[in-house]
Design a protein around this nucleic acid. Sequence first.
DNA 1: TAGATTGTTAATCGATTAACAATC
DNA 2: TAGATTGTTAATCGATTAACAATC
Lengths: 216, 216
Amino acid sequence: MKYKISNNVIRRLPRYIRFLELLEASGAVRVSSKELGELMGLTASQIRQDFNCFGGFGQQGYGYNVQQLSEAMSEIMGISHERKAIVIGAGNLGKALIANFKFKKYGYTLTAAFDVCPELVGKKFSRTPVYHIDKLEEYLMKNKVDVAALTLPGETASGVVTRLINSGVPGIWNFTRLEFPATFGPARVENVHFADSLLVLSYALKEKEKEEGGEA
Amino acid sequence: MKYKISNNVIRRLPRYIRFLELLEASGAVRVSSKELGELMGLTASQIRQDFNCFGGFGQQGYGYNVQQLSEAMSEIMGISHERKAIVIGAGNLGKALIANFKFKKYGYTLTAAFDVCPELVGKKFSRTPVYHIDKLEEYLMKNKVDVAALTLPGETASGVVTRLINSGVPGIWNFTRLEFPATFGPARVENVHFADSLLVLSYALKEKEKEEGGEA
DNA sequence: TAGATTGTTAATCGATTAACAATC
DNA sequence: TAGATTGTTAATCGATTAACAATC
């Protein structure tokens, strides 16, 4: 169970969790790798290989217990670590995270937001207080923070990342147009680039149009 | 130049574009696969292989012209198709897209937003009018739409997708908690799941902690 | 020309799929 | 027990890397 798990596998795990929760919600108690594969568009073989990176969750002749498997996957992703998050930048995207993102569901408590805008500082959104970004170090000194979500303009992001790392924040969830390396000094970074996915969609549309043009 | 390009390559292209634009902005005129590889954390070999899926953009002994290459990549992604987009759901995330996302930069014009909320319907955000979702079919009848961004609650997303597809919208940019297949009937779908990336970050943090624990 | 770097072929590596014995 | 389905090994496939001749 303990060597290096490939990145491909890791990135499939959250997807497994989502589908398993869906199954759970629909009342399914057990699922076979074949059924799950059909649902998710994967081969049964791949699913079994993926799961067996972490040990045997199934039972021959039966399949997998949906709830048990779902919990095991969540556990592997570290959902029970009781982590703390902050949001930096309380613009629309920051507010979207504050108001709608289910931090709790993924093991996080959102403890604060930061912004420069005087109209926002001092307010609360969905019970999350907004502090001035100048108070960042002070806050980090007093409060453990595992992940900072960057929802601020790209121009200012670079400096903020330096400050976060200097204050020992280990996780950066980056929504800005900048990209930081996955391992950035002592920190771990996840970059989310909306534009990338829109471009991939554009490409798919182009391909589709070509196919249709070709057929006609 | 014309067979099937692998998904891995396609998903790397937007990233190439981003780094090339960065280089361009920094005033670089030429770049070698070696330099670009060091910048992006890829091998020079892989970069040359990727580019050569689409034909020879470089020049032996010289490298690649940054601007030319960047434009060629953008072109491959179909950036010049002059596409139209709408946003469905004008909550925080919808507003974030409307206000901050550079649709133009990626070849899109954002033409409308839709919502159910009476406080929003009839208003404009950053020059984008918000219509009632009941008017969706009417709007789609009169206006070509290539991509609909779904920034509404998951509960209502499924029905909206059916309506979009019935009205012939070919592209779905899905930000809800639901997941649709990449090819969903005649439509092409890109799913964006914030939670997936946060979980991957959680996993990375867990690994980091384990390493540090191990060393100590 | 000599040096650099591409485009491209060949080699390697890793990931996915297939197969099947183990076993519930 | 017979049937189903896992866990796991072996085979295949595809993606990445290495190598090098072509050429700017």
